[in-house]
Design a protein around this nucleic acid. Structure first.
Lengths: 251, 251
DNA sequence: CGTGGCTTTGAAATGGGTCAAGATCCGTGG
DNA sequence: CCACGGATCTTGACCCATTTCAAAGCCACG
């Protein structure tokens, strides 16, 4: 069992297969929002103290619970502190589309800025905890610190790119390619967080994956099975081990 | 022939079927970037002069030309002044996906902020002109003016929502629904700009549309023909007239 | 240690893709 | 102003990747 520490950004590689740290432990988090919300890659530290002082209470969200729902008034941004969440957007007829998977360090809630109302729902895929960043305070801070401003802009821009890429996945790739792209993306992001590139616990269900990738859960399942037969991966339910990274890359 | 004026935000309804105003006319644009880049809906005017002074030279882009290409260094944001452009993202294997359609007033280039490099290519669908907004200057300004800062944030957030919605279209809707959603989106945006909700000239080719909607050009064509037979629209090539808006809404 | 949710797998059905042939549009040059 | 040629669009026929429907199995958790 891991200690309830926040993800460290050292180069230590360990797998994140253990269950999430107890989300109930802390009400305040010190360095997490800085590192995570305001750019995974450390960077300048001069105005970290400011942000830390300003921001950063924590909230825990149980598996299946919503951090916020579409339509909720928007006041805070969040940064995933531990665990993972999915963002979901609903069509008027009830159909739902998973629009994102957020891992430790990822920002949440940016979509709320434009209308002062959240436009998607964010649901924990496992017991998770997030840092709360009051948007008004952050905005204020961005006017004092250019570094801060820069980080926020980059964060939003990064998110834009991520979504464009997902549009590309949905619009142009075959089922096999989509699943491969997804596995590679998660592998990569896991690696960036100091976890294993090769092995991870996908907390999403096959249905969530399917929704995110624009296909049915059955097709996801079949595709994973096929990948397994071809020796590309080893999948035991939600536990995925990538065996042939290059193989996946070459589709 | 329309005068080379910039889109007005009055309630005047007119169609935009006429050819675009001559893009070569002006090297400087006064009020356009304000209104357009910094929120289509006018809003506070107190620091407009500042922005106008700061920003806002114009550039014209001929049909088919790129405003910027993926990989280009990022220095400026743009706001469409007249005409329209598509944004395109390329997969390494060469496949391309149209990721957006930008009409008058829409921002362009926000994706470049995160890496100081444009990550998609922006191509004019007709002779167009854009306002150039040097990002460094804008950033500076956002630190002086909260209104400005707010507008920029909202702009980016709006873009995020737009892309999420498109993910929903790509991931969850049938071909018919996609085409209908697209037509309704364009109709709506056209209306917001003071043009007709019912009639517009889609400058994209069927192939562009298909790419944007994750389907082939043939399917787009067939779908439009079917819509026409059902009396939902009247399509003469790129010229689209929506006859039964409600019908389209109900899929 | 049972029950409901999740996953796997099969078989059949189908929506949309692919390929191909014409028709139409449009910019260009004569 | 017209004729030409390439790009774009439409339509048909066939095909196949993915969905749909169905039936077990698995497992995680209370």
């Amino acid at each position: 069992m891991l200690t309830p520490n926040v993800v460290s950004h050292t180069t230590v590689r360990r797998s994140n297969l253990a269950t999430a740290p107890n989300p109930r432990t802390s009400a305040r988090c010190s360095s997490c929002a800085m590192r995570h919300l305001c750019m995974p890659q450390g960077l300048a530290t001069d105005d970290m103290p400011k942000l830390e002082a300003l921001i950063c209470s924590a909230r825990s969200v149980r598996r299946g619970e919503a951090l916020y729902r579409a339509g909720d008034p928007f006041d805070n941004l969040y940064a995933v502190r531990s665990g993972s969440l999915k963002t979901v957007m609903a069509h008027r007829d009830g159909r739902e589309q998973v629009t994102g998977l957020r891992l430790a360090g990822d920002p949440l809630g940016l979509d709320g800025i434009s209308t002062d109302t959240h436009s998607c729902t964010s649901i924990a895929l496992e017991d998770s905890s997030v840092c709360i960043v009051p948007y008004a305070a952050l905005k204020h801070m961005c006017r004092e610190s250019g570094t801060m401003q820069d980080r926020l802009h980059r964060l939003m821009s990064e998110q834009l790119i991520r979504e464009s890429s997902q549009m590309m996945v949905l619009g142009s790739l075959s089922a096999d390619e989509r699943v491969a792209a997804f596995l590679l993306d998660v592998s990569d992001r896991n690696g960036q967080r100091g976890y294993s590139h090769a092995e991870f616990n996908l907390r999403m269900t096959r249905e969530d994956m399917g929704s995110y990738l624009g296909m049915t859960l059955e097709t996801v399942s079949r595709t994973l099975s096929r990948f397994q037969k071809r020796g590309l991966i080893d999948a035991q339910g939600k536990l995925i081990r990538i065996i042939d990274l290059e193989g996946l890359r070459h589709l």
